[in-house]
Amino acid sequence: MKRHFRVWRGDASGGDLRDFDVEVNEGEVVLDIIHRLQATQTPDLACRWNCKAGKCGSCSMEINGKPRLGCMTRMSTFTEDETITITPIRTFPVIRDLVTDVSFNYEKARETPAFAPPPGLAPGEYRMQQVDVERSQEFRKCIECFLCQNTCHVIRDHDENKPAFSGPRNFIRAAELDMHPLDDRTDRKEFAQASQGLGYCNITKCCTEVCPEHIKITDNAIIPMKERVVDRRYDPLVWLGRKIFRRDQLESAENMAPSTTVGVAGTSGGTTLGASGVPHSSVRLPESAPIGPDGRMDVAELLAPQQGGLSPFGEDISFPLPPEYITYTHPERDKNQ
């Protein structure tokens, strides 16, 4: 059966959508159709691909506006009369047709400090527990398709942010090394904040949504890093505390309060003060990793009700939070100060 396709053709100097009618057979994916186009109508249609099995991350494109892998998009997911529009990924400069210049990602990867082997351990002496490596292994599933980089609004249509922002792909690399049981560096989070532009991310989770490997980029990498990198000086609650307590009260208040995270975590909110004058905190108690009866964590995100490990904010919260859930109110400046 013939189906209607619109494919963007052109190069850095410009281009447009061209119309094609292509034969589509049962069980095919979008990349099959592109190959048929090349073989029958447009031998010079440029498109990257390699494994055709969702393992190499080469055939990233935008299909009906959605960042997808061509090899992982089944034709049966479209209705029969639907026109399928295929365009190159938008965040990176076009080279030709569906091929873009993704060198940005490689440059940023090169700026991220590599694994630092533990001194004093010879090859063959590394000992790690399965539960400990699994957190990093989730991020090492990344196939570098760069769909997360493509969809991230910090750099999509904002070239000016590119120099300062490494993007989700490199955040999970930093998180992976941070969680590596034997990595010798201790400044991964600080590096992400200071040099990768972690602060630009406002956790809209778009990267997680487009990840073909279903890596929980936001929940398991970005948020934990942000959470731990937030020093008290940036914490509005602590800032507020400094304003309303005397210095002698402040010491104990700071010592008693659990590490406070406000805004994204807030359920009961910390601005109400308890009888003791110490702010209540609804911060989640620490949770251990979900270990099965065999002493191992589930490798498969598909097994769990949700992908990857648990969100540090609980499973019933999704982001962004509706404004009425956020109990933080910006304090008035003290005019006398």
Binding site: A114, P117, G124, Y126, R127, M128, Q129, Q130, V133, Q137
Partner: peptide, 24 residues
């Protein structure tokens, strides 16, 4: 082969582990 695999760990590879923490 064993040396070459162990060497990868010093490059940052994370293989699945046995109970006693070695490469499974």
């Amino acid at each position: 082969a064993p040396e070459r695999i162990w060497e990868l760990e010093t490059y940052g590879a994370l293989f699945d582990r046995t109970k006693d923490g070695k490469i499974s």
